[in-house]
Design a protein around this nucleic acid. Structure first.
Lengths: 150, 150
DNA sequence: AAAGATTGAGAGATCAATCTTG
DNA sequence: CAAGATTGATCTCTCAATCTTT
């Protein structure tokens, strides 16, 4: 386990700065045009994709990389905005499941084209087909390792 | 300006999730082992690279992508920790320049191997030479565009 | 008035401690 | 006691308003 080569350090820095700037720009865009932080969008997408369109607090926290307590506040605010509901699961009464409301689904539907436009403008439009394949291949390994490390 | 292709959306998601997880892991690592947030590290690196090892508040804020007020607080804390000093520039007395102290330089020197080990472990070691070239090529365009968009 | 930086108020995140159920 | 979730204290970030200097 040594230090990265200079080329790899330069690549890291490009990745780091691009990522920081992209998250910043896309979050502002979504906040300005949809009154929705990127985190809420992320929550709604994960709920949409979950079997039964519902996830336990703990599972949702793992997926969106939020601390347990952080997620509690996020869901508090989303519930207050009318985008999700908390439901007690059937068997185990310690478990809370988060479910999107109709308003939440509608908000995601409205936000999606805005967000995708931003992804296209700031990210996707600058990658040709070779770039897409290469970046995917490279980041797949990084993604798996870093998510496992938590 | 249309919507990204499915392959590009998948690549974006890989990028988004990897970046979020990497920033989280590396920030925790640095905080745990060096008592220094990633932001401080970033500030110290930018100061080290600046001509004269000093930057105005405004310029530093642009480089590390912090809001003006956000940077004021960051520098408050770093100054309190003894890592940087504020100095009034010669000519224009509205300008404040930020300069690293000896303790700040030492802290960066101590943190660098730790941080680079993390970069190696979670990012660089998973990229072969082809990946490095491809990712750099792809992200260079993204980086330039998104930084210009601010 | 404009530029550079700071301040006050409020939102968002985390850790450790706590409550509830198993 | 352990697991799931919330709460309290605290820290960081951002926006809008303010202060100082040009």
């Amino acid at each position: 386990v040594s230090s990265p080569t200079p080329e790899r350090l330069a690549t890291w820095r490009l990745f780091f700065e691009s990522a920081w700037a992209l998250l910043d720009v896309l979050d502002r865009e979504l906040a300005a045009e949809c009154s929705m932080p990127l985190r809420w969008y992320d929550v709604l997408v994960h709920l949409e994709e979950a079997p039964g369109e519902r996830l336990r607090m703990g599972e949702l926290g793992n997926q969106i990389l939020s601390s347990k307590s952080g997620l509690t506040r996020v869901i508090d605010r989303m519930e207050e905005a009318g985008f999700v509901r908390r439901e007690r699961a059937g068997g185990d009464r310690r478990v809370i499941e988060v479910v999107p409301t109709e308003a939440g689904v509608a908000a995601l539907t409205a936000a999606r084209p805005i967000h995708r436009r931003g992804i296209q403008e700031y990210f996707a439009s600058h990658l040709d087909d070779r770039d897409v394949a290469a970046v995917s291949r490279a980041l797949q390994k990084v993604h798996d390792e870093v998510r496992a490390a938590r």
